[in-house]
């Protein structure tokens, strides 16, 4: 890569304290949600981040927009390490990266009108003046394909799909460069999901946005992202261009995910390969976190944490015994 990426995440580790602790006692253990994750996103690119529940994908997204403080590692926007900045120093960077949450019922305050929801970022970040806000809000609604007359009412008057578009409009209010999309389509019906995906695709090409698209939906991610990162229990298993990942998954976990994905085009007589069961205990053994379920595990997997290595141009995998060799 010749130019530096817009977002660079380096060796990110996020941990949460566990155990109640007492009045003056510190909490005891900690739960590592994100474990040494690194990736970069180029300007105008959409990186898909897939993982199942409990993989830490939501935590990762929140860490990127500085809602969760990492224990270690750096999150650089245009080369500036955001994790090193104070709240005040962070202020000029906040408009540049925004997040769309999974459930618009949760992310839009039911006691706000749509206008208040859309102008809140402008007032908090002191963008423009009060007189221009309403026009800006109307313009934002227009950008996501909603009529202006929605402005006066609270969110509960609208359907799930409309609310999610309102949430996207709010994220666009500050004219961000990077949008973190945290499962923006997962609670929606198929037809609504398609509209949101189309909208996100259109917005990206129209506004030149950069996306970190977090989801468990392999179909959605392959529709939007040209490159996909696979997260397993806070551990980045594989990063590859979408087509490459679908055609030649190298990590056994990626292969299992794609095998389990129901498809319209596969014939019903096709053999669905057996998929190892998930579940098990945390924290994992010192080796690979997937070792307990991996059909290809070798002795080394149990003792040594696999490092990421390059298999093909921009195809990286963290596995001792990948499904495909280097090419």
């Amino acid at each position: 890569m010749s130019t530096s990426p817009l977002l660079a995440v380096e060796d990110l580790t996020v941990a949460f304290a566990t155990g109640a602790g007492g009045l003056l006692r510190r909490a005891r253990g900690s739960f590592v949600a994100i474990d040494g994750v690194s990736f970069g996103i180029d300007r105008g690119e959409c990186l898909g981040l897939i993982g199942e529940s409990g993989s830490g994908k939501t935590t990762l997204g929140r860490a990127v927009v500085q809602l969760v403080a990492p224990r270690e590692g750096r999150i650089c926007l245009d080369g500036v390490d955001l994790t090193a900045l104070s709240g005040r120093e962070l202020r000029p960077y906040r408009p540049r990266l925004q997040i769309v949450f999974q459930d618009p019922t949760e992310s839009l305050n039911p006691r706000f009108t749509i206008e208040e929801i859309l102008t809140e970022p402008l007032s908090l970040l002191r963008i423009g003046n009060r007189e221009g806000w309403r026009d800006r809000a109307a313009h934002l609604l227009d950008q996501v394909g909603l009529p202006e007359d929605l402005l006066g009412r609270p969110p509960r008057y609208y359907s799930g799909g409309q609310r999610q578009r309102i949430a996207i409009a709010r994220a666009l209010a500050t004219e961000p460069e990077l949008l973190v999309l945290d499962e923006p389509t997962s609670g929606l019906d198929v037809s609504m999901q398609a509209r949101i995906l189309n909208l996100l695709r259109d917005l990206q090409s129209r506004l030149g946005l950069t996306y970190l698209f977090i989801t468990h939906d392999l179909g959605a991610v392959s529709y939007l992202a040209r490159r996909i990162a696979v997260l397993y229990r806070g551990f980045l298993a594989e990063v590859a261009p979408t087509r490459e990942l679908i055609a030649h998954p190298a990590h056994p976990y990626t292969a299992a995910l794609f095998a389990a994905l129901p498809r319209l085009v596969r014939g019903r007589d096709a053999v669905i390969p057996s998929v190892p069961a998930l579940g098990g205990s945390w924290p994992p053994v010192p080796g690979c976190p997937y070792v307990g379920h991996c059909p290809r595990a070798v002795d080394r997997c149990r003792t040594e944490r696999p490092l990421r290595r390059l298999l093909a141009p921009s195809h990286e995998v963290a596995c001792h015994n990948p499904m495909v060799g280097p090419r």
Binding site: S191, Q193, N198, S222, T242
Partner: peptide, 23 residues
């Protein structure tokens, strides 16, 4: 047809998904 067209296809990700207008 619209429902089928609204599902992303791994084999042809560039195919635009079908929009169903309205609710």
């Amino acid at each position: 047809q619209a429902l089928l067209g609204a599902i992303p296809r791994l084999d042809a990700p560039e195919l635009r998904l079908t929009d169903i207008e309205g609710l």
